[in-house]
Design a protein around this nucleic acid. Structure first.
Lengths: 222, 222
DNA sequence: ATAGTATTCAATTGATCTATTGAATAATAG
DNA sequence: CTATTATTCAATAGATCAATTGAATACTAT
């Protein structure tokens, strides 16, 4: 039986291949790129600017992700647009984040200390929010940039990037709660929007998670 | 606003912490250790032997996993028993494996080429199997070592390690299908058991996944 | 064609990771 | 107490990875 000798090799090879995927996830910059790509397609320059990386560096990290099969590239003219390879990638990221949060004491402290302190209230769960949106009880505020909003957003959400928030407060009704969201659990825009709104006397809360998490829950996107 | 300067730091720090968890998953040996731990608690020496690593090397990898919060250690006498920190870790592993399989062309070839060729038939899904077990239509064969069987197994499963299979064929009924399983999708024991059984004229198939996947599906364990 | 832009490639340097080895701890058995 | 066993620690050398730089490629617009 040749398999007696080949068996360990095959098993080691299988695990080594799975490990290469994990290795692609094992750098903060690449996780940040993936979070941005979870919002929708992006070209290299924009990704570099949003993450603060040099273009060459961003390009190399993106190629690393591509080799691991986590993202795909589409060339259009002189631009190369990257996007997540698959919805399963977004689910994997969420799972990784969840394990990291529950298991890493330090991370837990950061998340619950720094982030949660900014708004005293618990975040609204996606399902709760959907129910209240359908009953017209709540204003949904998307504080991401307009391009990301255009690529998909929550039902009946209003787009108001954080920078414009102060000037456009009059557009928001004061007689119902405002729920803000942005890219994901580690996107700080929504935290700051809630802080600002509450300073101005609004009843404001944050959505638990961002658009990718909403999508993963199987809820509708416009 | 001090957050204008601190914001990027917090975000980078958050992603860096999540990345350390991914880094812990980024080595084949550690994934193999985790697969074994998904079967139940194990001490260092046993893990070293099962993986073919030196004890010191296995110990270091285990400590790496522990620092990342993926496993926990329990000291009892002179032994240190490791186990998965959480059920979410098993789910994360399954998710990682799934993404790796669908996205890595090479891995796909290995899995469907080498493994699937060993038994021509499709594997049985956990839900199908549970239904057929309850109707008494099938014999469930657990080909893992007795310790792992003792730590938990499928309802009404028969334990028969691969090495004993040939001698104990008479214990298996020939008038109904036999479904074999072992540790997980990359555990080769079940493939070999099915091949052997079919050579001997049994109607044999493989369960899709192993005990950890069965657990994750929320199905009952004895 | 020419200039300009987006992206990738190639080479370098410093940093991090892995496996091995042998010694150090800690618990147990005689 | 001494010998034994399980585990961890510490130091090393080789391998791999990350960021930077400047050049190369590929496409667009004039």
């Amino acid at each position: 039986m040749s398999s007696a000798k080949r068996k360990p090799d095959v098993k080691k090879t299988l695990f080594a291949h799975v490990a290469t995927v994990a290795k692609a996830l094992s750098h903060g910059h690449r996780l940040e790129l993936l979070e941005l790509l979870a919002q929708g397609e992006r070209n290299v320059e924009v990704l570099a600017r949003l993450t603060g990386l040099s273009v060459a560096n961003a390009s190399q990290h993106l190629q690393h992700l591509r080799r691991a099969g986590l993202v795909v590239a589409r060339k259009s003219g002189q631009y190369v647009h990257y996007r997540l390879a698959d919805e399963a990638v977004a689910a994997l990221l969420a799972s990784l984040r969840g394990v990291a949060e529950t298991n890493l004491a330090e991370l837990d402290k950061l998340v619950s200390g720094y982030l949660r302190s900014q708004d005293g209230l618990e975040p609204v769960s996606p399902k709760q929010l959907l129910r209240r949106v359908r009953e017209g009880l709540v204003t949904v505020l998307d504080v991401r940039p307009p391009e990301e909003f255009a690529a998909g957003h929550l039902p009946s959400a209003v787009n108001m990037p954080l920078k414009e928030l102060k000037q456009r407060l009059s557009e928001l009704p004061r007689d119902q709660e405002v729920v803000a969201y942005c890219r994901g659990p580690y996107c700080l825009l929504a935290y700051e929007a809630v802080a600002e709104l509450r300073e101005q006397g609004f009843a404001a809360r944050r959505l638990d998670g961002g658009l990718p998490e909403w999508r993963l829950a199987g809820l509708p996107v416009e």
